[in-house]
Design a protein around this nucleic acid. Structure first.
Length: 696
DNA sequence: TGAGCGTACGCCCCG
DNA sequence: CGTACGCTCA
């Protein structure tokens, strides 16, 4: 096909300028994925470059998969093993290939720890160092991650700093001794590897003739260094970004990398994509209105030629139940008009909000998927069986050993394990080997079980071997005994993962399992789900980045939730605003924005004001909230005159109080009103005629 | 050793 | 509200 077909001039330029540094500033919905994939296809097809000489990095697995799929469709080639991946899997791939240069303890089958594993190790170290409970392991774990990611990290509190230093030293040592990396290490160790080994760096510099980076505004210092190291020689580096969609500063993303790029690569050619092909004008207007409140931006205004639009809709409900009912009814109503389930997405700031909507969707029997949240591969039972498989393949894997040695219960408790730990330290052997130095029946039979499974790995088909593991370990039986139906289902679902692995990796069972286990920690369960699935999607705004839907519900748009209570500084608030911008610009045709005055969370009712972003959208300029008699919900309607009320205040009024600040009337009678103020004041019962109160 | 119970606490967002 | 962890006792 003609790779330049249907591209506008700016997009064509971005595809054709294949040599030298190029930076594309691409607004939301301006066709950046299209540009990226066409450019890669162009380089391969029109210029004859090998697909394996192109490196493309993105942030999510989903984006990487989509890119591979699109390239495969454009060129009709197999893209499975192309270097199109997330930063993390790129680094893992390099580290596995170069493990020999990582120091004696690392081998190419190192394991990658997720947050849970990593926290467990920190807890273990807390015990070992006998650190009291005036500081939490989670705090130090977060500090360790921050110290690895943030450009300017420091701990003020000298006590915390002391603990941090001690724990971090032990932590790094433990990971090293156990042939493991955490997510942060993947990036750091790769950069270190390149910096310390000129010949290895040269090899990769020569290998990748063309480098492309998606979501460039979300790169952190380490990622920038990585890109720079790889691209500094041939300078064929192409980055795509949008300053207004930078939403990952909490893990060190630096918007300033955009300016830095131009400094480091002075020959940078700049391309602007400002025409939006995704959303209607009304939706785009909202996005522009919100984002213009940010000061820290160069500034651009997206435009579209699609002027035909349905007005975005905002409503604040009395409680989260009503909010969920509204969303449900709207979905049903729009389905009658021809929308399909896959056209809908419900988006929120924090994952726990999904609960509210799950409940009504289940009741209404509407199929849905939740993105993110608790991934399939981080479920306890899945991690347990994976640990069995890991230990069967490699008995020196202490991390997996500790996970399942007493799971299900085998009467191997902390006392026994402490003995084992002591012997393993004394003799510099793994915990598994240390079993031989203890006369303990439970441990002996555990060892024999693992060893006999290890013997039979290649003797039966993989599926049968999996059954054998579930059986001999007693794992399945223990789940059955406890009526853990959902867990059993997940254990069975894992079979499809094994089946897929058989298609992906070559060799005997052991080789297939080894390949699968290496890739597992970098996968999330929604990676394989097809967009064509007839389901509605629930996700956080962060998860939604890069995606689009015909109908978007932005829910729980309340102060304290969005912007989050944790957003204090002006920078924090600007980031929240960018998150809001990302949310709005996901919508193609219809956008519904909802909030609830009263939200049930943490086992109690919380009261919230509408998000400040709603005001910024100017959705209700001179409109007063009113009750309708029919449905007892607040509706905002233009051009309806406010009836004179004999009560001084009515529910929904915003007031200001000399001491408590701004508040929302949640109950109104003749001589008392209840008003919800911001944290820490909460609900106050007040005299409506008091001079401290003013109507806003 | 681990079941059973009481208490504390949740702070977002991701690979 | 749910869960995670620590303490106590059989």
């Amino acid at each position: 096909m003609d790779l330049l077909k249907d591209l506008n001039d700016a997009q064509k330029e971005a595809v054709l300028q294949t040599e030298g540094p190029v930076m594309v500033m691409a607004g939301a919905g301006s066709g950046k994925t299209r540009v990226l994939t066409r450019r890669i296809a162009y380089i391969i097809e029109q210029m004859g470059v090998s697909p394996y000489s192109v490196l493309a990095v993105t942030f999510t697995n989903k984006a990487a998969l989509e890119m591979k799929e699109r390239i495969a469709n454009l060129l009709g080639i197999d893209t499975k093993f192309m270097w199109v991946s997330t930063f993390h899997s790129f680094c893992a791939r390099v580290l596995r290939a170069e493990a020999a240069h990582l120091g004696l303890t690392y081998t190419s089958n190192f394991q990658i720890l997720d947050d849970e594993d990593s926290l467990k190790i920190v807890k273990k170290i807390f015990k070992k160092l006998d650190i009291g409970d005036d500081i939490k392991p989670q705090t130090i774990r977060t500090d360790i991650s921050k110290s690895k990611n943030l450009a300017d990290f420091n701990i003020e509190d000298p006590y915390r700093l002391k603990i941090f230093n001690k724990v971090k030293t032990e932590y790094d040592k433990y990971l090293c001794e156990n042939n493991a990396f955490d997510f942060d290490d993947l990036l750091i160790k790769t950069v270190e590897l390149f910096k310390n080994n000129a010949d290895i760096l040269n090899k990769y510099q020569d290998k990748f003739n063309y480098i492309l980076v998606d979501e460039f505004q979300d790169t952190n210092k380490i990622q920038f260094d990585l890109i720079y190291l790889l691209a500094m020689n041939n300078q064929n580096i192409f980055v795509v970004g949008d300053e207004d969609q930078s939403i990952y500063s909490f893990r060190g993303a630096l918007v300033s990398n955009i300016a830095k790029f131009k400094n480091v690569f002075p020959l940078t050619k700049l391309v602007l994509l400002e025409e939006n092909y995704r959303s209607t004008k009304a939706i785009l207007d909202l996005a522009n209105k919100v984002i213009k409140n940010n000061n820290a931006r160069i500034g651009k205004v997206l435009f579209t030629k699609q002027i035909d639009s349905v007005r975005p809709y905002y409503q604040m409900f009395d409680d989260n139940k009503e909010e969920a009912d509204f969303v449900l009814n709207k979905i049903l109503e729009l389905r009658e008009k021809g929308y399909e389930y896959k056209d809908f997405a419900i988006m929120y700031r924090a994952n726990y909000i999904s609960r509210n909507f799950e409940d009504v969707l289940i009741k209404a029997k509407i199929p849905y998927v939740i993105y993110g949240g608790f991934s399939f591969f981080s479920r306890k039972e899945v991690k347990d069986v994976v640990a069995y498989l890991r230990l069967i393949l490699n008995q020196n894997d202490n991390i997996s050993f500790l996970r399942i040695v007493n799971e299900p219960k085998r009467k191997i408790g902390s006392t026994t394990l402490e003995k084992l730990d002591y012997i393993s330290n004394q003799n510099k052997i793994s915990l598994f080997e240390a079993i031989n130095y203890i006369n303990n029946n439970s441990l002996n039979s555990f060892r024999d079980m693992i060893l006999s499974l290890a013997k039979s790995v290649n003797e039966v088909p993989l599926g049968d071997f999996y059954d054998l593991v579930l059986d001999k370990s007693n794992y399945l039986k223990s789940l059955k005994d406890n009526d853990e139906e959902e867990r059993i289902e997940n254990i069975n679902e894992f079979r499809s993962v094994l089946k897929e692995a058989l298609d992906t990796y070559k060799g005997n069972n052991e080789a297939v399992l080894a390949g699968l286990l290496q890739d597992l920690s970098l996968r999330t369960d929604t990676d394989n789900k097809k967009d064509s699935d007839e389901v509605i999607k629930l996700m956080s705004f962060h998860q939604a980045k890069g995606l689009e839907f015909k109908v978007v519900f932005m829910v729980a748009m309340e102060e304290g939730i969005f912007p989050s209570v944790n957003a204090f500084s002006n920078e924090d608030l600007e980031e929240e605003r960018r998150i809001c911008y990302v949310g709005i610009t996901r919508a193609r045709e219809r956008l519904y924005i909802t909030a609830a005055k009263k939200r049930f969370m943490y086992g109690r009712d919380d009261f919230h004001m509408p998000s400040r972003f709603i005001k910024e959208m100017e959705l209700l300029p001179k409109i007063k909230p009113r009750y309708t008699n029919q449905n007892k919900t607040l509706v905002y309607k233009a051009n309806i005159k406010d009836k004179k009320d004999e009560l001084p205040f009515k529910v929904g009024d915003e007031i200001s109080h000399d001491v408590f600040g701004k508040g929302l009337v949640v109950e109104a009678n003749k001589d008392i009103i209840k008003v919800a103020f911001m944290i820490p004041y909460g609900i106050k019962t007040l005299n409506p005629n008091h001079k401290a109160i003013k109507k806003l």
